[in-house]
């Protein structure tokens, strides 16, 4: 869900790939999009700046370090998030152990009292730190939670895209979602969420895509992305700064120890 962007460079680099991918099943397309958007590389490190902007233009800012590691073999992931700003949440940290088919394990560290707590993860639609992104938007939605259909193929800007409709199988906070998935990078460049009345509720856009190299591989990355609530006018603009992949984050970083004492080396 996190992903969506405009990806022009990659198309120029490997135009041949596009023709090899015809008539893919919709679920396969969404699966690849999720892999490109949420799971690129063996691990990832970034500094994330989130601007929460209301309809009047009033802005609030959250700055955090994000570390992510994919576990070998499966789709399990570990996240470590450490807040630098604003001041009243400084040093607050989240640890998430994400599983594909059951509730995540989530812990929060509250620095004022040096306390580590498990937090309920049932409703992954809850807002992530007051932004327009939900927890699910940050770490991905189960592929099997929705039925996926390819509606059409069309260009979004300069990028050839699949337009996929995803309909939740169980009650969700959207009735359907349209995703423009770039045929080259597999990143979602745009997503539209419709509410129960089938009115457009939220729009995601990948505003800037960069090809980030690591160890001979290149990972197209949406380094600027926006989620806008078109009904309230509130939007959240996210910039991923200094993104790096395959940096060898040790597994023990994703434990309670890091909550208690943040691993300086990895969050600077």
């Amino acid at each position: 869900m996190l992903a969506r962007i405009v990806f022009a460079l990659m198309a120029a680099f490997c135009p041949l790939v596009i023709h090899a991918q015809e008539k893919l099943p919709a679920a396969e397309i969404v699966d690849r999009a999720q892999a490109a958007f949420y799971s690129a590389g063996a691990d990832m490190k970034a500094r994330v700046v989130m601007d929460l902007i209301n309809a009047d233009g009033k802005k609030r800012t959250r700055v955090l370090s994000m570390l992510r590691k994919n576990l070998p073999g499966g789709r399990e992931q570990r996240y470590f998030l450490y807040f630098h700003e604003p001041g009243d949440v400084r040093r607050t940290a989240f640890l998430v152990w994400k599983y594909p088919e059951k509730d995540d394990d989530r812990w929060i560290f509250i620095p004022a009292v040096n306390m580590t707590r498990r937090i309920a993860a049932r409703d992954s639609r809850s807002s992530f730190v007051g932004s327009d992104f939900s927890y699910e938007d940050i770490s991905g939605r189960d592929l099997a939670a929705d039925s996926h259909t390819v509606l059409r193929e069309e260009k979004l800007g300069a990028s050839a895209c699949y337009v996929v409709q995803s309909t939740p199988k169980a009650a969700a906070d959207f009735s359907r979602k349209l995703s423009w998935i770039d045929k080259t990078s597999w990143l979602p460049l745009k997503e539209e969420y419709y509410d129960a009345q089938n009115q457009l509720a939220r729009v995601f856009t990948a505003d800037k895509i960069e090809a980030i190299s690591a160890g001979g591989k290149t990972y197209p990355t949406a380094v600027k992305r926006t989620m806008k609530n078109v009904q309230s006018g509130h939007r959240t603009e996210v910039v991923f700064e200094s993104v790096s992949y395959d940096v060898g984050i040790p597994p023990e970083i994703f434990t309670e120890r890091s909550l208690q004492q943040a691993p300086e080396k990895w969050i600077r």
Partner: peptide, 16 residues
Amino acid sequence: VEHVYPPSGPSPGTAA
């Protein structure tokens, strides 16, 4: 009533 310092922006300790 609480007012937090310092101003926004990377602090020396957290800058890359």
